[in-house]
């Protein structure tokens, strides 16, 4: 299957400063509207696999509410313990007022 953009939410559903989790296939993705930009990141913390969606979000990071690991919104990089591994990030765009996320299919 080819890489493809998936329509996940209307843009109005994620106003500035908010975030919303969506399911795309087996992926749980968090759409974040921060600092006048949309980000699409994995909603699952790489430390203890807890959801990030209730975590505090700044202009550049999101903090896991369970144990406090933070991740860079743009790159997914883990910024502090207890996480070490990055979270996945996804290319995101708005088409006709819809937020679309690029899912890359892994060759099997």
């Amino acid at each position: 299957m080819a890489d493809s953009f998936h329509r996940v939410l209307s843009a109005a559903e994620v106003p500035p400063g908010t975030k919303k989790a969506v399911q795309v296939g087996d992926r749980c993705i968090l759409i974040c509207n921060s600092n006048q930009r949309l980000y699409a990141i994995s909603n699952i913390c790489t430390h203890a696999e807890k959801p990030l969606e209730r975590g505090r979000m700044s202009a550049t990071w999101i903090a896991c509410p369970t144990h406090g690991a933070r991740f860079d919104l743009a790159t997914g990089k883990a910024l502090n313990p207890p996480a070490v591994k990055p979270i996945a990030t996804y290319e995101v765009r708005v088409v006709d007022e819809w937020i679309e996320v690029l899912i890359k299919e892994v060759a099997t």
Binding site: H47, A48, R54, G55, R56, S58, A63, C64, P65, T66, H67, G68, A69, R70, N80, P81, P82
Partner: peptide
């Protein structure tokens, strides 16, 4: 440590890792 040094965030509870 319940939270790593040099960090900020929001907690509904402080759970030891």
């Amino acid at each position: 440590k319940l939270r790593a040094s040099g960090t900020v965030g929001n907690a509904e509870e402080f759970r030891c890792s």
